[in-house]
């Protein structure tokens, strides 16, 4: 049985831990809320852009040849944009998305190159000696704006256009709700405009708007597509980053809440042990005194 002082010291340290994890939980909760709002706010843009793209694809059957970002070619190299967190202590968040990516990697026969966002993914890919063509470590601010995403999206599109990779997949964590986040690996490039796009837009939420069939383009369809398509890809990357951030914070919040709960439980157990030990020592003292008195009385 540990001494009273030892138990007291342990209670104190566990209380400290609980305080820290609780604070982290609060921080994660407020960040999660903001990230969620941000992710929702950026959805209309992606939806509208998709409508227009879809329409452009309908317009010309030969749209496939209209833009290099749409052209399928024999796949020699696969690229994956892997979005993870810079920091740990977020429960299974980082390991889930990395595991999903590795599983995907195993299923492709072609050599894979990575573009990583976040320190965790970069470190792991390095450790396994995977090829990393670009990394964005400790790069994203708390609330990334479009400005922060542009370099990432451009890097992705450039490596596709330059032929470094022939296909690009987006590995990110979709935010479903506070307790559920699903890691996903979806194809980003070459982009398939005739398919309802599943990365960020729920199929049902796309209203089937009757867009006029005869359109005027200024200056011409090719130029318009050239403007619209990279922006859409950019907004998809942006959306994926925001979803991942919201997932990260909620995963961290849940993990910290569990840690806090566990700490409280531990404190309860320790308190019980402490009280029992205290009572025991009191009983022992009383017994000593009684024994002493009795011994004296006998004399």
């Amino acid at each position: 049985m540990a001494s009273l002082r030892e138990i007291r010291r342990r209670i104190k340290s566990v209380k400290n831990i609980a305080q820290v994890t609780q604070a982290m939980q609060m921080v994660a909760a407020s960040r999660m809320k903001k990230a969620q709002e941000q992710a929702l706010a950026s959805r209309p843009y992606a939806e509208r852009t998709f409508e227009i793209l879809h329409h452009l694809a309908d317009q010309s059957k030969s749209v496939k040849n209209l833009h290099p970002l749409l052209v399928e070619r024999p796949v020699k190299n696969v690229g994956i944009l892997l979005i993870t967190a810079d920091k740990g202590l977020a429960g299974a968040y980082n390991s889930n998305i990395i595991r999903a990516t590795m599983r995907f990697n195993k299923s492709t026969k072609q050599p894979t190159a990575y573009i990583t966002v976040g320190k965790k993914g970069f470190d792991l890919m390095n450790r396994f000696n995977n090829k990393v063509i670009a990394d964005f470590v400790n790069y994203l601010p708390d609330r990334p704006g479009l400005i922060d995403i542009i370099p990432i999206a451009e890097m992705v599109m450039d490596s596709f256009l330059n032929g470094v990779v022939d296909e690009v997949y987006l590995a990110y964590t979709k935010f479903v709700n506070t307790v559920v986040q699903t890691p996903r690996v979806d194809r980003l490039l070459p982009f398939e405009p005739s398919e309802p796009f599943k990365i960020t837009i729920e199929h049902e939420s796309l209203q089937k708007k009757t867009l006029a069939s005869v359109y005027e383009y200024e200056p011409d369809p090719e130029t318009v597509l050239d403007v619209v398509l990279p922006r859409f890809i950019r907004s998809l990357v942006y959306q994926a980053v925001l979803e991942s951030i919201a997932s990260e914070h909620s995963a961290r919040m849940v993990a910290m809440r569990n840690a806090t709960d566990n700490a409280h439980e531990l404190i309860d157990t320790l308190n019980l042990t402490y009280n029992r030990a205290r009572q025991e020592s009191i009983t022992k003292e009383i017994l000593d005194i009684v024994g002493g008195v009795e011994a004296l009385g006998k004399n």
């Binding site: 359109y215 383009y217 200056p219 130029t223 403007v227």
Partner: peptide, 13 residues
């Protein structure tokens, strides 16, 4: 360009 209602469908950068 100025756009009023009943404009011809147009897509422009």
């Amino acid at each position: 360009m100025g756009i009023l209602s009943n404009h011809v469908p147009l897509l422009t950068s």
